[in-house]
C-alpha cells in the first residue's frame, strides 16, 4: 500500500491542520519558583515563517518560557504546541524544534567538529557534509578542528547557532543570542539570524531585552512583564498603534525648517540638535509631514526614527 492510498479524509484533515498550525502556541503556561511567579497564565502564538521577538526586561519571564518550551524545566500549568505537536506527547514535541538557550556552552576539550558530530548523532544528522556546510555557513569551517576552549565568545555563539541548526529544525528558539558579545559580534549574529531565516526557511523565536536588535530583525513581537504577557502582534500592527514617536531630520536649512515645524500642528515637540532637528510626532502623521516639507521646498537628507519600540515598551511598562 502506498502512502497516498493509506490517506483518509481524517488524516488529510489532520495533515492540513498541522501544516497550518502555528510554529509555536502556548496555552496558559504558568511556572512558580518559590515565591516568584515567573510565568502567569501566558498564552501566545508564533506564526510560521516569522522572526518572532519575545521582549521583556530582565526577570520578566522570557527565559523561563523558553526553558519550558526547550524541555529544560516543566511548567506547573498549561501546555504548548510546536508545529501542531502537543507538549503532552513528551519529548517528541521537540522533534522539529531546536534551541540555543542562554550562552552557548560546549564540551570545551572537544573540537567544534567533535561537538557537532556528537550532537548530530542524537537525531541522525551527523554526516560530515551536513556538519561542514553548517560550520561554513556560520564561518567556523577553518577552525573546525580546534578545541572549543580556544574559541572567543562570539565564535561559541556562532557554534551554538550551528548546533541548533543540526537537526534541520522548522522552529529555532534563541534565548538572548547576542548576550555578552561585542558590537561586531552582535552584528554578525543578527546577520546570521536573517540569513538562516531566509535560506533555511526556519521560524525564529528570539528572546531579547535589546529593543533595537528586535526592531531590526523581527516581523512579530510579544512583550512580557512580571510573568504576564502584555502585548503581541505583528511589528506593523504594533507600530500602527504607537502614538508619538521621536524622529530626527537632517535638512539643508535648519533655521527655516525650525520655523516651519514650530508652526506645524502635526509636530508636538521640536528640539534643535547639532546636525539635525528632533521632533515628536504621531507615527501615522510622518508621511504627511514629509509631503508638506517637500511642498515647502525644504531639502531633506534623512528622516530617521529613534527608539520606536522603546517608546512603545516604556509606555506599556508605565501602564503596568
Amino acid at each position: 500500500m502506498t502512502e497516498t492510498e493509506a490517506m483518509t479524509p481524517q488524516s488529510i484533515a489532520t495533515t492540513i491542520e498541522k501544516q497550518s498550525s502555528p510554529a509555536l502556541a502556548c496555552y496558559g503556561l504558568s511556572k512558580r519558583f518559590k515565591s516568584i511567579q515567573a510565568l502567569d497564565d501566558v498564552s501566545l502564538t508564533v506564526p510560521r515563517g516569522s522572526i518572532f521577538g519575545f521582549l521583556g526586561p530582565n526577570g520578566a519571564g522570557k527565559s523561563t518560557l523558553i526553558r519550558v518550551v526547550a524541555g529544560l524545566i516543566a511548567a506547573d500549568k498549561g501546555q504548548f504546541e510546536i508545529l501542531g505537536k502537543s507538549s503532552l506527547s513528551g519529548h517528541k514535541v521537540r522533534q522539529d524544534m531546536s534551541a540555543l538557550v542562554d550562552r552557548a556552552d560546549f564540551y570545551k576539550n572537544l573540537s567544534a567538529y567533535q561537538n557537532m558530530k556528537m550532537l548530530g548523532r542524537i537525531t541522525g544528522h551527523d554526516s560530515d557534509e551536513h556538519i561542514d556546510r553548517l560550520l561554513n555557513l556560520l564561518g567556523l569551517y577553518k577552525r573546525r578542528k580546534d578545541k572549543v576552549k580556544t574559541y572567543s565568545q562570539g565564535m561559541k555563539q556562532r557554534l551554538g547557532l550551528a548546533q541548533a541548526l543540526l537537526p534541520n529544525p522548522k522552529l529555532l528558539v534563541l534565548d538572548e543570542p547576542t548576550t555578552g558579545l561585542d558590537p561586531q559580534g552582535m552584528h554578525e549574529i543578527r546577520d546570521f539570524i536573517l540569513k538562516i531565516a531566509a535560506e533555511e526557511n526556519v521560524t525564529i523565536f528570539l528572546s531579547s531585552h535589546l529593543l533595537h536588535e528586535v526592531e531590526l530583525i523581527c516581523s512579530d513581537i510579544a512583550l512580557i512583564f512580571n510573568g504576564k504577557l502584555a502585548a503581541q502582534g505583528s511589528m506593523q500592527n504594533i507600530f500602527d498603534n504607537i502614538g508619538d514617536v521621536t524622529v530626527e531630520l537632517e535638512v539643508e536649512d535648519s533655521a527655516a525648517t525650525l520655523t516651519f515645524l514650530e508652526k506645524n500642528d502635526l509636530v508636538s515637540q521640536v528640539t534643535p540638535l547639532a546636525h539635525a532637528i528632533r521632533i515628536e510626532i504621531h507615527y501615522s502623521k510622518i508621511p504627511e509631514l514629509i509631503r508638506l516639507m517637500a511642498a515647502a521646498k525644504i531639502n531633506i537628507f534623512s528622516v530617521s526614527q529613534r527608539n520606536r519600540l522603546e517608546n512603545y515598551f516604556l509606555s506599556l511598562m508605565e501602564g503596568k
Binding site: A70, G71, L72, V101, D105, Y107, I122, T123, G160, Q163
Partner: peptide, 15 residues
C-alpha cells in the same frame, strides 16, 4: 556546571 545540559537536554530525547 559547564552549562552543556542546556545544549544536550533540548534535543528531542527523554530525560
Amino acid at each position: 556546571a559547564n552549562g552543556t545540559f542546556r545544549v544536550y537536554a533540548t534535543r528531542p530525547i527523554s530525560r
